[in-house]
Structures are given as C-alpha cells and as structure tokens.
Amino acid sequence: MSLYVIAKIGEEEYALDIEKVQTIEKIMPITRVPQSDKHVKGVINLRGEIIPVISLREKLGLEEKEYDENTRIIVLKAFDMLVGMIVDNANEVVDIAEENIDTLTFNENTEEFSRYVSKVGKIKDKVFLLLDLKRLLDIKV
C-alpha cells in the first residue's frame, strides 16, 4: 500500500508519493529570481529556509491561474533538494494499491504533460496521474 498526495490542476488530479512531500503550505510571498527558467516562480522563506518554487501549471505547459485561497505550495524533498511546487489545490491523500498502477507508453514529445506522467493509478473509476519527479525536476542521469 502506498499513500499519495493529490495535487489538483483544474479538473486533473496528479498524485505525488507522500514520502517525498515535506509539507504543504498556503501561498506566500515569492521573491522572483532573475535569469531563471519560466516555470521557476522564485524563492520563498519557509521558516528561515530559502526554497525555490516552481509552478506545476507552467511546467506542464498549461495557462497560469491567479492564486487564491485554495492555492498551495507542496514542498517536495527529493533527490537531496527541497523544491516547492505551486498547485491549484491539495487537500486529499489517497491509497493506491500497487496492482492498480499502470505504466503508460507515450510517444516522445507528444504533449508537454505526458513527459512528466509515466504512470496512472486507479481507485474504482477514478484515475490519478502519477508525476515522475525525476523528469519534473529535470534530474539528469
């Protein structure tokens, strides 16, 4: 059994391995970092620690959306670094059984988001897209 945090972007539901999630924060002031990639929104001060923040929408090639009271920063701890990820909402944790996770096969470069989604999980008739953090955070190797 593995638990996943559900991040919402519009109607789509993305699943993140709960082990990798450090904390989920409400939106807070973000300091822009010049000369960085478009999806990098800047850095935040999370209780004294400086953490880079990226927009999942931008990363997936979607339109940006105004931040509101539902907007969340999911702080991920993966590959020895901390990265915040802005999502429309995150207020659910689900348990997806191993046998209900399927690996997808996409053509390379079909759609932006398919590069970051390699698996889908099912609970009854609901489908969750499992984010591939390695690709999402541009980890080489």
Partner: peptide, 27 residues
Amino acid sequence: IKPLGKYLTNVKVIAGATILGDGQVAL
C-alpha cells in the same frame, strides 16, 4: 547568506539569498 537551493544552481548573477527583518527574501 543562505544558498538558493540546489534546484537553482544555474543562476549566475545571484550568489544567494538572505531573509530581511520583515521576513522578506532579498537576493
């Protein structure tokens, strides 16, 4: 001085960040 974090290593003009009195981050 605090580092920007591993994710942002390719930003050449910024050496790091600091937290100001009001909690704001200044680069």
